[in-house]
Each structure stands twice: as structure tokens, then as C-alpha cells.
């Protein structure tokens, strides 16, 4: 199979402030402007698919892919309900969704499309699609983030996305919705005084953004476990977005990286980054863990361990 055509990748935060209250702080406004820049880039590109991986859509039964042609609802965020509602109506590429599911299954993953009226699309996906593709000019696809999935499964999921993009000859923009450090303040704050929760989170975020700026996506993928331990609140087993993004975009460091904005979102680290494939690599990649092509399950660790 020939390589898929991935025009560029976007890493952006899931919080609703850039959509609902960009005027509340200078930082939210800058993030909104960065989303706007990405929107224009997409419009000027020849993209015919926006593929979203959202960390705010957790799944349990394998990997869920949005398969409703026109999901429509009025969404309200669990924490930030007071900022207002988020009405949405999106256009999904259902043929791609089916192909993605098929590709995932052929690599050993459990996967299904979901196509139900009123299915609750998550805050992060809504923020991204409303800001990046406001007129639904380009059909989209959203994939969930499985709660239990770890590195192997996530990398295989990325490779499945790649297979599907190549098989359908799509020109795709890949969007990963995730914060950097994800510790928010546990109190209500004045948005004008928003800042990164701690100096340590800020320093790690800046280190990650240095890598992004240098286009070193695969290096970030290799650092995922370290990032998880250092600056991620342990809600899920691992920090997965860089694994998925790198696997989907080809597992290399050959990108032109642009950090368009980095600001606090209620204490968490919100960055908008664009990675455009380019020639020439930064340094040599160091693979500490095996690459993986096919998912073989959790290998019954718990059951056999008791014998």
C-alpha cells in the first residue's frame, strides 16, 4: 500500500474557553486566534478529511468511531456549564469511519462505529470541529480514546488510521485534542488571572513544545510514559495522544513544527501546534520499546499470573 497523504497535524486543547469565552482572558483569545490560523490553513489546503482523536471521549469497548452522518445536539460541559451551551451539527465521513473500523479490526483491535441520534460527542471534539471547520466544509471523523489502552494498542490504532487514509486515497488533516499538563485549579478562578498550575507543569510543557517546535513528534511519542508520570493527572493508564499522532503521521521526526499558542486553561496547559511533513530529520530516533504492527490483546496477564 502506498503511503497515506497526511497534509499536516494539529495538536489542540479540549477546554471550551477558546470557543465560549475567548474574550475572558488574553490567553484564551490567543488560543482562539491560533485555532483561527489552523482553520485558514485547512481551508487553503486540499484536505478532504479531518480525522480527530479526542482524549475527552473515553471508551471501554475497544475503539469507537463516530459513524452518524450528521450528529446534532446541544452540548454542555460537566465543569464549565456556566460558560454556555455548545450547539453543534457536524458532517461525518461515514465511509471513512467504516474503513477505519475495518482497518482497526484487521490489525487485531476491537472497534465499532457508533451512529445514534443524540450520542454525546465530547467537549474536546466539539471545540475542535466548531473552531477548525465551522461550516462543515470538510467531512470529519472522530475516534475515541480507550480507557485501558496502552502503548501497543494506541500505536496499532494509529497505524490503522494510516491504512484507512491510504486505502481511500484521502488527503487528511490529523487533529489530536489534548491538553499538555492537565491539572486544573480545583477552585473557581478569575479567568484574567489564569496561569499554569505549577512551575513544574509549565517547565515540562515548554520542554514538550520545544520538541513540537523542532518537529520531533516520534521523540515525543517515545517520551510519553515520562510525560504521563510528570505532568498528567492519573485519570487514565497512560498519556496516549503522542503515540497515536506519531503512529498516524508515520513515526518520524521529519516535520516543520509551529507552536501557534501556549496558554493556561484553568491551570492546565493548552497549546495549539501545527506539524507539517517536511524533509530532513532532527537527530536519530531512539527506540526504547518495540514497534508493534498487530495487537494481540492483553495476553491474559492477570489470569496466568495467579497460576
Amino acid at each position: 500500500m502506498s503511503d497515506p497523504e497526511i497534509l499536516f497535524g494539529i495538536y489542540c486543547p479540549p477546554h471550551p474557553q477558546p470557543l465560549l469565552s475567548p474574550e475572558a482572558s488574553e490567553g484564551y483569545g490567543k488560543l482562539r486566534d491560533a485555532f483561527e490560523t489552523c482553520r485558514k490553513r485547512i481551508e487553503e489546503s486540499e484536505a478532504d478529511l479531518i480525522l480527530v482523536y479526542s482524549t475527552t471521549w473515553p471508551s471501554i469497548i475497544g475503539h469507537q468511531i463516530q459513524g452518524h452522518p450528521e450528529p446534532e445536539w446541544v452540548h454542555v460541559d460537566d465543569d464549565f456549564h456556566y460558560l454556555g451551551s455548545m450547539p453543534y451539527k457536524f458532517k461525518m465521513d461515514t465511509e471513512f469511519a467504516e474503513k477505519f473500523r475495518e482497518s482497526a479490526e484487521s490489525r487485531g483491535l476491537q472497534s465499532r462505529t457508533v451512529a445514534y441520534d443524540g450520542f454525546p460527542i465530547d467537549t474536546g471534539s466539539i471545540v475542535a470541529l466548531k473552531l477548525l471547520n465551522p461550516d462543515n466544509r470538510i467531512p470529519a471523523c472522530i475516534v475515541s480514546s480507550n480507557m485501558y489502552a496502552n502503548r501497543a494498542e494506541t500505536i496499532v490504532l494509529g497505524k490503522s488510521a494510516r491504512d484507512a487514509i491510504a486505502a481511500q486515497g484521502k488527503k487528511a488533516v490529523v487533529v489530536v485534542v489534548s491538553s499538555l499538563s492537565n491539572r486544573m485549579f480545583t477552585e473557581h478562578i478569575d479567568p484574567a488571572e489564569d496561569r499554569i498550575h505549577s512551575a513544574k507543569d509549565d517547565e515540562w510543557n515548554k520542554k514538550i513544545l520545544e520538541f513540537f517546535g523542532d518537529g520531533r513528534l516520534e521523540d515525543l511519542s517515545q517520551l510519553s510514559r515520562e510525560i504521563h508520570g510528570q505532568i498528567r493527572v492519573q485519570k487514565v493508564v497512560a498519556y496516549k495522544p503522542a503515540w497515536w499522532m506519531s503512529a498516524t503521521m508515520g513515526q518520524n521526526n521529519n516535520y516543520r513544527g509551529e507552536v501557534l499558542a501556549y496558554e493556561a486553561l484553568h491551570g492546565s496547559g493548552g497549546a495549539v501546534v501545527v506539524l507539517t511533513p517536511s524533509k530532513g530529520s532532527v537527530g536519530d530516533k531512539e527506540f526504547d520499546e518495540d514497534d508493534v504492527e498487530h495487537y494481540h490483546g492483553d495476553r491474559g496477564v492477570l489470569n496466568t499470573g495467579a497460576l
Binding site: 473515553p58 445514534y116 441520534d117 443524540g118 454525546p120
Partner: peptide, 13 residues
């Protein structure tokens, strides 16, 4: 309104 389970939408709407 309608509540659709994000994890088991096949079972609960």
C-alpha cells in the same frame, strides 16, 4: 431530554 450512554450507546438511549 434524552440520555445516551457514551460507552454503551447500543444499550442505553
Amino acid at each position: 431530554s434524552k440520555s445516551v450512554d457514551p460507552v454503551f450507546p447500543n444499550l442505553f438511549r
